[in-house]
Simulated scan of single mutants.
Amino acid sequence: MALDTPKVGEILTPGSSEEQARQEERVRASFFQTVRRALRSVPFMEDVVAAYYCALDPQTPAASRGILLAALAYFVLPMDVVPDFILGLGFTDDIAVLWAAFRAVRQNIRPRHYQRARETLGEMDR
């Protein structure tokens, strides 16, 4: 099931600073657990992990942080448009949301974010 463009846009709308704080807390609490479950389902996981580090970087512009936090919060929710536990389909909606967020803010994802992503994913392979 693919998400339509208006729905993706709605998901990626940066919320208030309070909403962003809630999203950041949710993302920090379960991001890496979700990454482990989705490693084989999301073909651009290095970009996703780099986006995580970008979203937590205080030097990232607030609007980009908001978009990334919204996408990452959607990613860590186990029950979304297509529940993540559905084999073969569970992360398809997450992929659409993450890819749209990545494309919107890719100019803010720095080499240092990618370096940390590669290090983190390398540690997960052990």
Rank of each mutant, 00 (worst) to 15 (best):
R28W: 09
E46K: 06
F31R: 07
G66F: 03
I67T: 14
A38Q: 09
A62T: 13
Q20K: 04
P14E: 09
L3C: 02
F44T: 03
P14V: 04
E18W: 10
R22S: 09
Q33P: 10
L121Y: 11
E119V: 12
R40P: 00
E123P: 07
A21I: 06
L77T: 04
Y52A: 00
P43N: 12
D57E: 12
F102P: 01
Q59R: 12
R103V: 03
G88T: 11
D47H: 07
M45H: 02
L72Q: 09
P6M: 04
M79T: 15
K7W: 12
L72H: 03
E10H: 13
A96Q: 05
Y52I: 08
C54K: 08
D84V: 13
D84A: 09
L87C: 03
G66L: 03
A101P: 04
R103Y: 10
A101T: 11
Q59P: 04
V81E: 14
L68H: 04
H113K: 02
P61F: 05
Y114E: 11
A63H: 10
F75M: 01
M45W: 01
Q107C: 04
E19C: 09
L89S: 09
Q33Y: 15
R103N: 06
I67E: 05
V8S: 00
M79L: 15
G122P: 12
D57Q: 10
V97M: 08
S30D: 14
W99G: 02
T120E: 11
R40N: 07
P111D: 06
L68D: 02
V35C: 01
R28S: 13
L98F: 03
A101N: 00
L69P: 03
F102W: 13
D80S: 11
A73R: 01
G15H: 03
P78K: 05
S41I: 03
L56T: 00
E119F: 07
T120S: 04
V82S: 00
T34M: 11
F85L: 13
Q107N: 08
L77W: 02
E123S: 13
V49S: 00
L69I: 01
G88K: 07
R116W: 09
E18G: 11
D47K: 01
F44Q: 00
L12W: 10
E25K: 06
T92G: 08
Q33G: 14
R40L: 12
V8I: 15
S17R: 04
L98N: 01
G15M: 03
R22D: 04
P61H: 08
D93W: 00
T34P: 09
R37I: 12
S64I: 07
E18F: 12
A55H: 05
A50E: 10
R26H: 10
Q115L: 13
E119H: 01
A63R: 10
D84I: 11
Q33T: 15
E46M: 05
Y114S: 00
F85I: 15
V82D: 03
F91D: 05
R116D: 06
E119D: 13
A21T: 07
R36S: 13
K7P: 10
